[in-house]
Design a protein around this nucleic acid. Structure first.
Lengths: 339, 339
DNA sequence: TTGTACGCGTTATCAT
DNA sequence: ATGATAACGCGTACAA
């Protein structure tokens, strides 16, 4: 059995209250007693039981992080940044990867809720469904603690959204490409989440505003189940055999865009002379591929920073805006030449 | 205040014991009572308090995952795989990113220990220090619960190591390159962890066994603080201005190798005709860069699978080997031509 | 400065 | 099938 505060108090010849005071630095302990107790604790390697502790306390200075897949490049970075910010402010992080199943998600959310976290951060927009019924679990959670959304938006009391305007960003990216003289663009996407659909709308609006005819509409949905660059390349190849019927590729994600690069290289065409390519997220992949990838920077660092700022204020009882929107920026590299 | 089991028992007109039985499916509850209680629970959105629960119970079916940086490609994948395996076996994961500071690490380990996890998995070899004193916190933890090491090795009761033989793998990779006619190789590494040093030793042994003169020894340590492919490229450039004094690059990590690719392309040399390159980890990056990267596959999936298998057996009280070693495999792609 | 005693929410053991 | 009650380990009023 693990050693308890009671054991320590006995060995040290003091009461449990005194031991508790020593541990929690509550003051009012004589230096001699303090040292004695500290030594015993050290000697026996005593570690207070977090559950017993959590019972009485109100806040455990813990925040739950929920994401679908922590191995996804974008998510991994978001999680890392959030964790660092939280740690810097004295909060622990509890990370759960739920996958994409809605039921698993609800269970995880309840699980994390039962641990008396001070707040829950939902990383990515997969958590917001299109029907009110499916979002009920979020509303229920918000009854208990503030729910923070990273890169998603949901209007409800005690739910705070911090996001990048993916609609506008994608609109701008697509417009840039069209206005550089490329009307026939392949749009690649792999997620129908809140933000995934926003991007798509932004792309379509750019086509419309620039009077691109319907016949040039070329949109491909890649179901992410398989994964792997080779898969993506093969997928594009399959959908467009022979000479590609487009001169530009815009993808909702850098990984997809790299698939586009690989595809283009296989056809023997040149980038960006024959085909221009734009990715999304401005991840490390943009620097790994050749040529380096033009991509939309959705300012993840600014988002995470702002989100934690909002959270801390909310926990402190301050009134804060329910929704904060940043704007992304197109970072030009070698897969495009817009000048 | 959150709603408790006591509230539910009152509303339902039964005792807390009955409510508990309903929740935990312990049987011996009449269908009528069960339904009544279930309805009330549903109505009030009651969620049992995990801390109160944790007090009495022995196991919470939770495993702690400790890693340095969850945004690292290799780590992110490892964490994901472990989490999936654990979830499939009814265990939850508690993930903590400690960064590279040893003190933060100890604190996190104690923290996680205080939460009565059934085991702790240390992801990556950064956790094993070179001095016995620094490893004391691991030995202490092992007194309480089994400690699992992924890709590290430490000999101590109740510590189980599952790893890839990085020494042999790197030896093989380097030997292949040397025997293909490339004696002058630049070795790039960015970690002096247990496994980082093993790889280095393997490389050096390959040089020695193939009678490569000291004058061709070319080993570069890149301090990972900065990060970023451009940084790495610039670093190599800085260390080797003008025409590179080598015809091969071997890196301890795919990211570094991609830096090598970019560097080579900047010098105008061809890959693999002028310079051959080998990475390590066989990550998704191998498919993203051009040309695609030859890399050592350290069989992460096999490792995580075996690790969880061992863990489950140990928790079930079975006797298991303290150390399981897999061997890696060189996956040839377009940055080398060894035939 | 130190100790006593109770409460925290749940599970498990024993009666009934 | 159900209820009363004793743990579980800790923090903290309150008392001394």
């Amino acid at each position: 059995m693990a050693i308890t505060i009671y054991d320590i108090s006995q060995k040290a010849g003091v009461s449990t209250a005194t031991v508790s005071r020593v541990i929690n630095g509550g003051g009012n302990v004589s230096p001699a007693t303090c040292k004695k107790v500290t030594d015993i604790i050290e000697e026996y390697g005593y570690i207070p039981n977090a559950y017993a502790r959590g019972m009485g306390l109100r806040s455990l200075k813990t925040v739950g992080l929920l994401c679908a897949d922590s191995s996804d490049l974008y998510t991994a970075r978001a999680v890392y940044l959030l964790e660092q910010e939280l740690q810097a402010n004295g909060y622990e992080s509890l990370l759960c990867c739920t996958g994409f199943n809605q039921d698993v998600r609800k269970n995880y959310l309840n699980l994390i809720l039962s641990k008396k976290v001070d707040s829950i951060i939902l990383v990515g927009s997969h958590f917001i469904a299109s029907t009110e019924l499916e979002n009920e679990y979020i509303r229920e959670a918000a009854d208990q603690i503030p729910i923070m959304l990273l890169n998603a938006s949901y209007s409800h009391p005690n739910v705070y959204s911090t996001l990048c305007d993916d609609y506008a960003s994608m609109y701008e990216a697509a417009s840039s490409m069209i206005q550089s003289g490329i009307p026939d663009i392949l749009y690649l996407y792999n997620s129908r989440s809140y933000s995934g659909l926003k991007k798509l709308k932004g792309f379509e609006k750019a086509l419309a505003d620039n009077h691109i005819p319907e016949s040039m509409r070329n949109i491909l949905y890649y179901d992410k189940s398989a994964g792997g660059i080779e898969d993506i390349t093969a997928f594009i190849q399959e959908m467009t055999d022979g000479r590609p019927p487009f001169h530009g590729i815009i993808a909702s994600d850098d990984v997809l865009a790299v698939g586009g690069i690989k595809y283009t290289q296989k056809t023997g065409l040149r980038i960006p002379e024959d085909i221009s390519i734009i990715g999304y997220n401005n991840s490390m992949l943009t620097a790994c591929c050749t040529p380096s990838l033009t991509s939309v920077d959705n300012c993840l660092e600014a988002l995470t920073h702002q989100l934690i700022h909002t959270l801390l204020q909310v926990l402190a009882g301050e009134q804060m805006p329910q929704k904060v929107v940043f704007s992304g920026k197109l970072i030009e590299r070698d897969t495009t030449c817009f000048h």
